[in-house]
Simulated scan of single mutants.
Amino acid sequence: MKLAKTYAFLKKDLSLIEDALEVSVYADQEILNEASLQLLKAGGKRLRPVFVLLASKFGDYNLEKIKNVASSLELIHMASLVHDDVIDNSDLRRGKPTVKAKWDNQVAMLTGDYIFAKALQQFTEIEEPRAHQILSHTMIELTIGEIEQIKDKYKVDQNFRNYLKRIKRKTALLISSSCQLGAIVANTDNKSEKALFRYGYYMGMSYQIIDDILDFTASEKELGKPAGSDLINGNITLPVLYALEDPLIHKELTNLFSNKKQVTSDAIKPIISKIISSNAIEKAKKVSDMYLQKAYESLQLLPNNQAKESLENIANYIGNRKI
């Protein structure tokens, strides 16, 4: 089953959010407008708006109100991607040139800042003070996650706790906040709101771990960027942490990372092959499955409806992505 089919009944509402996103990123300044539109048109799953809409289905579903939350969270996600591409010096995302590749780092960073600002401007339409507190906390943690990733680049000796904290900040919190904010603006009951938040958190953790696995197991065409990009950029992910338990892989990667200039796609291929042939992928998948199971358990606390079924189907899709 394709991901979009799991929430097909939201197609019309998501189309309206897509229109709202295009209006939101418009800028009078030509380069800023072109760069923002390029990022928007690059596509994406729009998972964060989907989670907002589905969570809202457990309360008073008012699309006009919910639309602002959904589009704001997607804008924040988009802005973080632009900044990520600068940090990682990435020329491709989803198979298309990044903003920094088409223009430069300065334009990319300013485009990201602009989109962040537009997200905040749009979110001012939401009156609930707690929603603003949650969004502020999420953005602070997202930024800390980015800084922590920069700090830990090319650092071989890391631990699992730091990795989990990093992906919580970089990925899981924005997804859990999408679920929670959708619940808040729809005035869902407290029990449902907490269950949706937990579901989003566990889904976000599982989703990022699977992404980190796919960086090794998927093709460049499937990834829309070179395979092994994370490791080439010095990012130590869960499969790498498990692989580093092998003294030979640990020694080889330590030697390679001792001089960043020698870390090229060709130089790192032998290490990537060793990681793939080890049991690191299998071990990482088990951790993802653990979080996925917790996401399913969180859903059991929610009333049965079409949205709950869609959340279950999304979890099935995420957990079974080809690795």
Rank of each mutant, 00 (worst) to 15 (best):
I236Q: 02
K5C: 11
D60G: 05
K194Q: 13
R321Q: 15
E282H: 08
A70Q: 08
H132Y: 03
R48M: 14
N313F: 03
D230V: 08
A117E: 01
L299N: 01
Q149H: 13
I249G: 07
E297T: 15
A108D: 04
D85R: 03
D88S: 12
N313D: 08
E222N: 10
I66A: 01
L238V: 08
Y296T: 04
F160A: 14
S177F: 12
G44Q: 05
I314R: 01
P49V: 12
F9P: 02
L256Y: 08
Q180N: 14
I276R: 15
I150M: 10
T138F: 01
N105M: 10
S56H: 07
N187F: 11
E18T: 13
A8W: 10
V287L: 15
L301H: 15
G145N: 10
I213M: 06
R46W: 05
D230N: 08
K283V: 04
K221S: 13
K294T: 02
N235K: 11
L10G: 05
F116M: 13
K322D: 11
K118N: 06
I209K: 06
S178N: 07
S36Y: 08
Y154W: 12
M205S: 01
I150E: 06
Y114T: 00
L238M: 13
A119R: 02
K118L: 10
A218M: 04
G228H: 02
K165V: 04
T111L: 09
F216I: 06
L214S: 04
S36K: 03
I323A: 10
V99A: 05
K308Y: 12
Y317C: 01
K251A: 15
S192C: 13
M205T: 02
K2S: 08
F58N: 07
S206V: 00
L196V: 11
L73H: 09
H77L: 14
W103V: 12
D85N: 10
S36D: 03
A35S: 14
T6E: 04
V107Y: 04
L75R: 00
L301Y: 10
Y296L: 09
A195Q: 05
V156G: 01
P226D: 05
L135K: 01
A307Q: 11
P239G: 03
S80A: 10
I271T: 00
S56M: 05
K194C: 00
K286E: 13
N33A: 07
L14V: 10
E125P: 02
L63C: 06
A79R: 03
A295H: 07
G145K: 05
K225A: 07
A35R: 00
E245N: 15
P270R: 00
M205A: 12
L14F: 09
K102I: 09
N159L: 12
N255E: 15
